[in-house]
Protein backbone atom coordinates (compact mmCIF):
# COMPACT_ATOMS: atom_id res chain seq x y z
CA UNK A 1 0.00 0.00 0.00
CA UNK A 2 1.23 3.44 -0.87
CA UNK A 3 -0.15 4.98 2.30
CA UNK A 4 1.95 2.75 4.54
CA UNK A 5 4.76 5.22 5.36
CA UNK A 6 2.29 7.98 6.11
CA UNK A 7 0.26 5.57 8.18
CA UNK A 8 3.34 4.60 10.16
CA UNK A 9 4.18 8.24 10.80
CA UNK A 10 0.67 8.93 12.09
CA UNK A 11 0.88 5.90 14.38
CA UNK A 12 4.19 7.13 15.74
CA UNK A 13 2.70 10.54 16.41
CA UNK A 14 -0.28 9.04 18.20
CA UNK A 15 1.93 6.79 20.33
CA UNK A 16 4.05 9.85 21.11
CA UNK A 17 1.01 11.77 22.34
CA UNK A 18 -0.36 8.97 24.50
CA UNK A 19 3.14 8.21 25.77
CA UNK A 20 3.69 11.85 26.74
CA UNK A 21 0.52 11.97 28.83
CA UNK A 22 1.37 8.60 30.41
CA UNK A 23 4.81 9.96 31.37
CA UNK A 24 3.17 13.07 32.84
CA UNK A 25 0.87 10.80 34.89
CA UNK A 26 3.60 8.44 36.00
CA UNK A 27 6.26 10.97 36.91
CA UNK A 28 4.81 12.31 40.17
CA UNK A 29 4.08 8.78 41.38
CA UNK A 30 7.55 7.56 40.49
CA UNK A 31 9.09 10.66 42.03
CA UNK A 32 7.13 10.07 45.24
CA UNK A 33 8.55 6.56 45.55
CA UNK A 34 12.13 7.59 44.70
CA UNK A 35 12.03 10.59 47.04
CA UNK A 36 10.98 8.29 49.84
CA UNK A 37 14.29 6.47 49.53
CA UNK A 38 16.43 9.60 49.33
CA UNK A 39 18.10 11.31 52.23
CA UNK A 40 17.00 14.80 53.25
CA UNK A 41 20.16 16.21 51.76
CA UNK A 42 19.69 14.45 48.42
CA UNK A 43 16.24 15.96 48.00
CA UNK A 44 17.71 19.45 48.10
CA UNK A 45 20.92 18.85 46.21
CA UNK A 46 19.73 16.49 43.50
CA UNK A 47 15.92 16.70 43.17
CA UNK A 48 15.81 14.91 39.82
CA UNK A 49 18.37 12.17 40.49
CA UNK A 50 18.01 8.65 41.76
CA UNK A 51 18.56 7.87 45.44
CA UNK A 52 22.16 6.89 46.30
CA UNK A 53 21.24 4.12 48.72
CA UNK A 54 18.01 2.20 49.06
CA UNK A 55 17.12 2.33 52.75
CA UNK A 56 13.76 1.97 54.43
CA UNK A 57 14.57 4.40 57.26
CA UNK A 58 12.06 7.00 56.17
CA UNK A 59 9.36 4.35 55.83
CA UNK A 60 9.95 3.39 59.46
CA UNK A 61 9.70 7.01 60.59
CA UNK A 62 6.51 7.53 58.57
CA UNK A 63 4.90 4.35 59.90
CA UNK A 64 5.41 5.71 63.40
CA UNK A 65 2.75 8.38 62.77
CA UNK A 66 0.14 5.65 62.99
CA UNK A 67 -0.40 4.74 59.36
CA UNK A 68 -1.31 1.21 60.41
CA UNK A 69 -4.13 2.51 62.59
CA UNK A 70 -5.35 4.85 59.82
CA UNK A 71 -5.35 2.04 57.32
CA UNK A 72 -7.25 -0.22 59.69
CA UNK A 73 -9.84 2.51 60.28
CA UNK A 74 -10.21 3.05 56.53
CA UNK A 75 -10.73 -0.66 55.98
CA UNK A 76 -13.38 -0.84 58.72
CA UNK A 77 -15.24 2.23 57.50
CA UNK A 78 -15.09 1.27 53.81
CA UNK A 79 -16.14 -2.34 54.34
CA UNK A 80 -18.97 -1.43 56.67
CA UNK A 81 -20.36 1.35 54.50
CA UNK A 82 -20.10 -0.63 51.24
CA UNK A 83 -21.85 -3.61 52.85
CA UNK A 84 -24.74 -1.45 54.03
CA UNK A 85 -24.97 0.36 50.70
CA UNK A 86 -25.15 -2.86 48.67
CA UNK A 87 -27.67 -4.55 50.94
CA UNK A 88 -29.97 -1.58 51.46
CA UNK A 89 -29.83 -0.33 47.85
CA UNK A 90 -30.24 -3.85 46.46
CA UNK A 91 -33.42 -4.51 48.42
CA UNK A 92 -34.87 -1.11 47.66
CA UNK A 93 -34.04 -1.22 43.95
CA UNK A 94 -35.43 -4.75 43.57
CA UNK A 95 -38.68 -3.88 45.30
CA UNK A 96 -39.08 -0.75 43.19
CA UNK A 97 -38.16 -2.45 39.92
CA UNK A 98 -40.72 -5.20 40.53
CA UNK A 99 -43.50 -2.90 41.62
CA UNK A 100 -46.05 -1.17 39.47
CA UNK A 101 -47.44 1.14 42.13
CA UNK A 102 -47.16 4.88 41.75
CA UNK A 103 -46.11 5.21 45.38
CA UNK A 104 -43.01 3.14 44.80
CA UNK A 105 -42.05 5.27 41.80
CA UNK A 106 -42.38 8.35 44.01
CA UNK A 107 -40.18 6.77 46.69
CA UNK A 108 -37.65 6.00 43.99
CA UNK A 109 -37.62 9.60 42.77
CA UNK A 110 -37.13 10.75 46.36
CA UNK A 111 -34.10 8.49 46.86
CA UNK A 112 -32.74 9.56 43.47
CA UNK A 113 -33.08 13.20 44.53
CA UNK A 114 -30.51 12.47 47.23
CA UNK A 115 -27.99 11.85 44.46
CA UNK A 116 -27.96 15.55 43.63
CA UNK A 117 -27.10 16.71 47.15
CA UNK A 118 -23.32 17.07 47.65
CA UNK A 119 -22.09 16.59 51.20
CA UNK A 120 -20.04 19.80 50.82
CA UNK A 121 -23.30 21.75 50.77
CA UNK A 122 -24.79 20.29 53.95
CA UNK A 123 -21.75 19.85 56.20
CA UNK A 124 -22.83 22.46 58.74
CA UNK A 125 -26.02 20.74 59.93
CA UNK A 126 -24.51 17.31 59.30
CA UNK A 127 -21.62 18.14 61.62
CA UNK A 128 -23.98 19.50 64.25
CA UNK A 129 -26.30 16.50 64.06
CA UNK A 130 -23.52 13.94 64.32
CA UNK A 131 -21.90 15.84 67.18
CA UNK A 132 -25.19 16.25 68.98
CA UNK A 133 -25.83 12.52 68.67
CA UNK A 134 -22.37 11.89 70.16
CA UNK A 135 -21.34 10.08 67.01
CA UNK A 136 -18.25 12.13 66.24
CA UNK A 137 -15.05 10.12 66.46
CA UNK A 138 -17.13 7.00 66.01
CA UNK A 139 -16.30 4.78 63.06
CA UNK A 140 -19.74 3.21 63.46
CA UNK A 141 -21.31 6.66 63.13
CA UNK A 142 -19.48 7.73 59.99
CA UNK A 143 -20.27 4.40 58.31
CA UNK A 144 -23.95 5.40 58.24
CA UNK A 145 -23.18 8.85 56.88
CA UNK A 146 -21.09 7.33 54.09
CA UNK A 147 -23.80 4.77 53.42
CA UNK A 148 -26.35 7.54 53.01
CA UNK A 149 -24.31 9.29 50.34
CA UNK A 150 -23.70 6.03 48.46
CA UNK A 151 -27.25 4.69 48.50
CA UNK A 152 -28.90 6.98 45.91
CA UNK A 153 -26.46 6.26 43.10
CA UNK A 154 -26.26 2.55 43.89
CA UNK A 155 -30.05 2.36 43.93
CA UNK A 156 -30.16 3.94 40.46
CA UNK A 157 -27.53 1.47 39.26
CA UNK A 158 -29.31 -1.59 40.68
CA UNK A 159 -32.70 -0.34 39.56
CA UNK A 160 -31.70 -0.30 35.91
CA UNK A 161 -29.95 -3.65 36.36
CA UNK A 162 -33.07 -5.27 37.81
CA UNK A 163 -35.23 -3.74 35.10
CA UNK A 164 -33.11 -5.55 32.52
CA UNK A 165 -32.96 -8.75 34.55
CA UNK A 166 -34.76 -11.52 32.60
CA UNK A 167 -38.18 -11.78 34.17
CA UNK A 168 -38.56 -15.39 32.93
CA UNK A 169 -35.84 -16.58 35.30
CA UNK A 170 -37.80 -15.29 38.25
CA UNK A 171 -40.97 -16.81 36.87
CA UNK A 172 -39.24 -20.13 36.31
CA UNK A 173 -38.01 -20.01 39.91
CA UNK A 174 -41.52 -19.32 41.18
CA UNK A 175 -42.86 -22.29 39.22
CA UNK A 176 -39.98 -24.33 40.63
CA UNK A 177 -41.30 -23.63 44.09
CA UNK A 178 -39.38 -20.55 45.26
CA UNK A 179 -41.09 -18.07 47.57
CA UNK A 180 -40.34 -14.38 46.89
CA UNK A 181 -37.36 -14.31 49.28
CA UNK A 182 -35.98 -17.50 47.78
CA UNK A 183 -36.34 -16.06 44.27
CA UNK A 184 -34.30 -13.07 45.39
CA UNK A 185 -31.58 -14.95 47.24
CA UNK A 186 -31.29 -18.13 45.12
CA UNK A 187 -31.72 -16.76 41.61
CA UNK A 188 -31.50 -12.96 41.45
CA UNK A 189 -28.58 -12.42 43.85
CA UNK A 190 -26.27 -15.12 42.44
CA UNK A 191 -26.72 -13.60 38.99
CA UNK A 192 -26.15 -10.04 40.16
CA UNK A 193 -22.47 -10.68 40.90
CA UNK A 194 -21.04 -8.36 38.25
CA UNK A 195 -23.47 -5.57 39.11
CA UNK A 196 -22.72 -5.92 42.83
CA UNK A 197 -18.97 -5.96 42.20
CA UNK A 198 -19.24 -2.86 40.03
CA UNK A 199 -21.23 -0.95 42.60
CA UNK A 200 -19.00 -2.12 45.46
CA UNK A 201 -15.77 -1.08 43.75
CA UNK A 202 -17.23 2.28 42.82
CA UNK A 203 -18.37 3.06 46.35
CA UNK A 204 -15.21 1.62 47.92
CA UNK A 205 -12.98 3.93 45.89
CA UNK A 206 -15.01 6.96 46.90
CA UNK A 207 -15.34 6.07 50.56
CA UNK A 208 -11.69 5.01 50.87
CA UNK A 209 -10.68 8.44 49.59
CA UNK A 210 -13.38 10.57 51.25
CA UNK A 211 -11.86 13.51 53.07
CA UNK A 212 -14.24 16.28 54.13
CA UNK A 213 -16.58 14.28 56.37
CA UNK A 214 -13.69 12.33 57.85
CA UNK A 215 -11.86 15.60 58.56
CA UNK A 216 -14.84 16.97 60.47
CA UNK A 217 -16.15 13.88 62.17
CA UNK A 218 -12.96 11.94 63.00
CA UNK A 219 -10.57 14.21 64.90
CA UNK A 220 -9.19 11.81 67.48
CA UNK A 221 -5.81 10.46 66.20
CA UNK A 222 -6.72 6.81 66.66
CA UNK A 223 -9.99 7.24 64.74
CA UNK A 224 -8.68 8.95 61.62
CA UNK A 225 -8.93 7.36 58.21
CA UNK A 226 -6.06 7.44 55.74
CA UNK A 227 -6.90 10.66 53.84
CA UNK A 228 -7.08 12.62 57.10
CA UNK A 229 -4.24 10.70 58.67
CA UNK A 230 -1.72 11.38 55.94
CA UNK A 231 -2.36 15.09 56.34
CA UNK A 232 -0.63 14.65 59.68
CA UNK A 233 2.58 13.69 57.85
CA UNK A 234 3.00 17.28 56.74
CA UNK A 235 2.84 18.67 60.24
CA UNK A 236 4.83 15.91 61.85
CA UNK A 237 7.82 16.03 59.50
CA UNK A 238 8.22 19.73 58.77
CA UNK A 239 11.29 19.36 56.63
CA UNK A 240 11.64 15.60 56.56
CA UNK A 241 10.40 15.25 53.00
CA UNK A 242 11.58 11.66 52.55
CA UNK A 243 9.39 10.64 55.50
CA UNK A 244 6.39 12.46 54.02
CA UNK A 245 6.94 10.75 50.69
CA UNK A 246 7.41 7.40 52.38
CA UNK A 247 4.14 7.88 54.25
CA UNK A 248 2.35 8.79 51.03
CA UNK A 249 3.84 5.75 49.32
CA UNK A 250 2.60 3.48 52.10
CA UNK A 251 -0.84 5.09 51.89
CA UNK A 252 -1.24 4.96 48.11
CA UNK A 253 0.59 1.81 47.04
CA UNK A 254 -1.98 -0.69 48.38
CA UNK A 255 -4.84 0.91 46.45
CA UNK A 256 -2.67 1.23 43.34
CA UNK A 257 -1.75 -2.44 43.59
CA UNK A 258 -5.36 -3.49 44.05
CA UNK A 259 -6.24 -1.34 41.07
CA UNK A 260 -3.53 -2.93 38.92
CA UNK A 261 -4.77 -6.40 39.87
CA UNK A 262 -8.44 -5.63 39.27
CA UNK A 263 -8.03 -2.90 36.66
CA UNK A 264 -10.66 -4.35 34.33
CA UNK A 265 -13.33 -4.34 37.04
CA UNK A 266 -12.25 -0.89 38.28
CA UNK A 267 -12.46 0.67 34.87
CA UNK A 268 -15.78 -0.96 34.08
CA UNK A 269 -17.18 0.08 37.42
CA UNK A 270 -16.17 3.73 37.27
CA UNK A 271 -16.99 4.10 33.59
CA UNK A 272 -20.51 3.05 34.58
CA UNK A 273 -21.07 6.56 35.87
CA UNK A 274 -21.40 7.71 32.28
CA UNK A 275 -24.37 5.48 31.59
Amino acid sequence: MTTAPRFRAVQLLLYGGVGLWSAFVLMPIAWMVFAAFKTRREIFTDPLGMPQTWTFDSFERAWGVGLGQFMFNSIVVTTGAVFIIILVSGLAAYAIARSTSMWMKLLYLLIVAGFAVPNTAVIVPLYQMVTAANFSNSLFGIIWVYAAYGIPFTTILFFSFFLDFPRELEEAARLDGCRPWAVFFRVVMPLSGPAIASAAIFQAVFIWNEFLLALLLLTQPDRKTLPVGILQLQGEFTSDWPAVMAGLSIATMPIILIFLLLQRSFVRSLAGLGK
Partner: peptide, 13 residues
Protein backbone atom coordinates in the same frame (compact mmCIF):
# COMPACT_ATOMS: atom_id res chain seq x y z
CA UNK B 1 -4.26 1.51 33.11
CA UNK B 2 -1.52 4.10 33.54
CA UNK B 3 -3.63 7.08 32.56
CA UNK B 4 -6.55 5.99 34.73
CA UNK B 5 -4.40 5.24 37.78
CA UNK B 6 -4.50 8.66 39.54
CA UNK B 7 -8.28 8.33 39.78
CA UNK B 8 -8.00 5.71 42.53
CA UNK B 9 -5.60 7.75 44.68
CA UNK B 10 -7.13 10.02 47.31
CA UNK B 11 -7.17 13.69 46.40
CA UNK B 12 -5.33 14.43 49.65
CA UNK B 13 -2.39 12.25 48.63
Amino acid sequence: VIIFMPMVISAVA
